[in-house]
């Protein structure tokens, strides 16, 4: 029997005002993309607690995508700037502990960018496919 192809599981935190609407547009426009993203709608990308990301990765998600409005377009004016700093911080901590930083990605996707949403999901999926499954999954006693 042929071995099943690895299909990553990516947890996507999408901001209600831009990225979720962008994903919606991609769907309505019937854009084709890999079925790898599990969307979680948040009111703002800055609602994403670092612990959400950590939980997802430790419990075996292959990657985490945080998506929000483009800088300057935040519905709450400055939320995404805080997100950006926070992601930079998390990546630094991961880097310093020898954890893979490229399993976490931040993307700005506006409500009109259905195509960009598809591109982000496709390239991220491709990247994770090449990397392989999250090694944390193999850690039995975690």
């Amino acid at each position: 029997m042929e071995e099943q192809e690895f299909l990553p599981r990516i947890i996507g935190f999408l901001c209600n005002w831009c990225s979720y609407a962008g994903a919606d547009l991609a769907g309505v426009s019937r854009l084709q993309m890999p079925p790898t993203l599990i969307p979680i709608r948040v009111m703002c990308s800055s609602r994403v607690d670092p612990l959400f990301i950590l939980t997802a990765l430790l419990r075996g998600a292959d990657a985490v995508l945080v998506a929000g409005c483009h800088p300057g377009d935040c519905h709450y004016q400055y939320g995404n700037y805080y997100t950006r700093r926070r992601i930079a911080l998390i990546k630094k901590v991961f880097d310093q502990l020898g954890l893979e930083t490229d399993r976490l990605r931040l993307a700005w996707i506006s409500a009109s960018e259905g195509g960009r949403f598809r591109d982000v999901v496709t390239t991220f999926t491709q990247h994770i496919k090449e990397k392989g499954p999250n090694p944390i999954k193999k850690e039995i006693f975690l």
């Binding site: 400055y78 805080y82 700093r85 926070r86 700005w108």
Partner: peptide, 17 residues
Amino acid sequence: IPISTFEIKEFEELGEA
């Protein structure tokens, strides 16, 4: 404290993925 503030122009490579 850095995470309680931000600058408009910084970490611009993040988010362009």
